[in-house]
C-alpha cells in the first residue's frame, strides 16, 4: 500500500473535533448536575440559619401569631419514628440478607432478592396507604406505631441488600477456617462472618435510617403529626418532615421561615448519620 505518512484527512479532523465537543459537553452536564445541589444547599442553609438557635431544639411550637418557639417535639418524634422503623427494618433486613447470601442460591432466594429490589421501587406513599389499612384502621386512630412500621418496611430493601453484599465480601477462606475448626455453620456465620462484615452492614443500616428520617409521604396519614409533646407510640406523633410540609404550605411567613430551619436541622441529622457512615467505612479500610 501507499505508505501514508500520518497525513490527517478531513474525516480525521471532523472526528477529533466531534470528540472534543462531545467530551466537553459531558463535562458541562456534570457541572450542570451540581447546580441544583448547590442551590438547594445554599437556600436551606442561608434561610434556615435565621431560626437556628437553642430554642429550636428545646422549645415547643408556638400557636399561630406568636413568633419564636421550636420543634423539640418533632425532633424527638422523628427519632422515635426511625427508632420504631429500625426495630423492624434492621432485624428483618439483616436476617433476610444473611439468608440470601448464605442459603439463597435457590429459586426462593432469587424470588426474594428480586422482590427486595422491587420493594425498594415501590413509592413510599403506597407503603403509607398499606400501613393505614393495616394498622390505623384496626386501631381506629393515627399513631406513631403505624408511621414507624411504614418506615420500617421502607428500610428493609436497603438493609437486606447491603447485608447480602457485605457478607459476600467476606472471604470464603475465613468461613472454611471456622468450619475446619469444627465450628458448626451457624456459629461460624454469626461469630466469624457477620462479625467481619458488621461494619459494612452498619453502613447499610445507617443509610436505611437516614433515608427513613427524610420520608414524609408515608407519615402523612399514619403518624399524622402532633402539635403537642407526645412520646407514646399509640398516639399521633410529630416529625420534622411533616412539619416542613405543613409549615411550607402555610400562609404565615414565620412558619415558612421555620420550615427552612426544620429542613436545615433535618439535613444536619442526615449528615450526622452519613458522617457516622463515612467514619465507619474509613476505619474499615484501615484495618484491612
Amino acid at each position: 500500500m501507499e505508505n501514508g505518512m500520518m497525513k490527517p484527512d478531513f474525516f480525521f479532523y471532523r472526528k477529533k473535533i466531534t470528540s472534543f465537543i462531545m467530551m466537553s459537553l459531558t463535562f458541562i452536564a456534570a457541572l450542570a448536575a451540581i447546580i441544583p445541589l448547590v442551590l438547594i444547599f445554599y437556600y436551606t442553609i442561608s434561610k434556615g440559619i435565621t431560626y437556628l438557635n437553642l430554642d429550636f431544639f428545646v422549645a415547643m411550637p408556638k400557636p399561630v401569631g406568636e413568633s419564636g418557639g421550636g420543634m423539640a417535639n418533632a425532633i424527638v418524634g422523628t427519632l422515635i419514628l426511625i427508632g420504631i422503623g429500625g426495630a423492624i427494618g434492621i432485624p428483618v433486613g439483616i436476617m433476610t440478607g444473611t439468608y440470601l447470601s448464605e442459603f439463597g442460591k435457590n429459586k426462593f432466594g432469587y424470588v426474594v432478592r428480586f422482590l427486595t429490589d422491587v420493594l425498594s421501587g415501590i413509592p413510599s406513599i403506597v407503603v403509607g396507604v398499606v400501613a393505614y389499612t393495616m394498622i390505623v384502621v384496626p386501631m381506629k386512630h393515627f399513631s406513631a406505631l403505624a408511621g414507624g412500621i411504614a418506615l420500617g418496611i421502607l428500610m428493609i430493601p436497603t438493609i437486606t441488600r447491603t447485608t447480602e453484599e457485605m457478607i459476600k465480601l467476606v472471604p470464603q477462606t475465613l468461613r472454611e477456617a471456622g468450619l475446619a475448626l469444627g465450628i458448626p455453620k451457624w456459629k461460624t456465620t454469626l461469630s466469624i462472618v457477620l462479625k467481619s462484615a458488621w461494619k459494612g452492614i452498619a453502613t447499610g443500616v445507617l443509610l436505611g435510617l437516614s433515608r427513613a428520617a427524610g420520608e414524609t409521604a408515608p407519615l402523612l396519614f399514619t403518624a399524622l403529626g402532633n402539635r403537642f409533646w407526645s412520646t407514646s407510640i399509640g398516639q399521633p406523633i410529630a416529625s420534622l418532615t411533616v412539619y416542613i410540609y405543613d409549615y411550607a404550605k402555610s400562609p404565615f411567613e414565620d412558619w415558612n421561615q421555620q420550615a427552612w430551619t426544620a429542613a436545615l436541622v433535618l439535613i444536619l441529622l442526615i449528615s450526622l448519620l452519613s458522617l457516622l457512615f463515612r467514619v465507619i467505612t474509613r476505619s474499615k479500610y484501615k484495618t484491612n
Binding site: 505518512m5 500520518m6 480525521f12 477529533k16
Partner: peptide, 14 residues
C-alpha cells in the same frame, strides 16, 4: 515509525 517520532503524533492517527 518510518523515521517519524510516534510519541509526537496524534495517537488516533497512529
Amino acid at each position: 515509525l518510518d523515521g517519524e517520532d510516534l510519541t509526537k503524533t496524534d495517537p488516533v492517527l497512529l
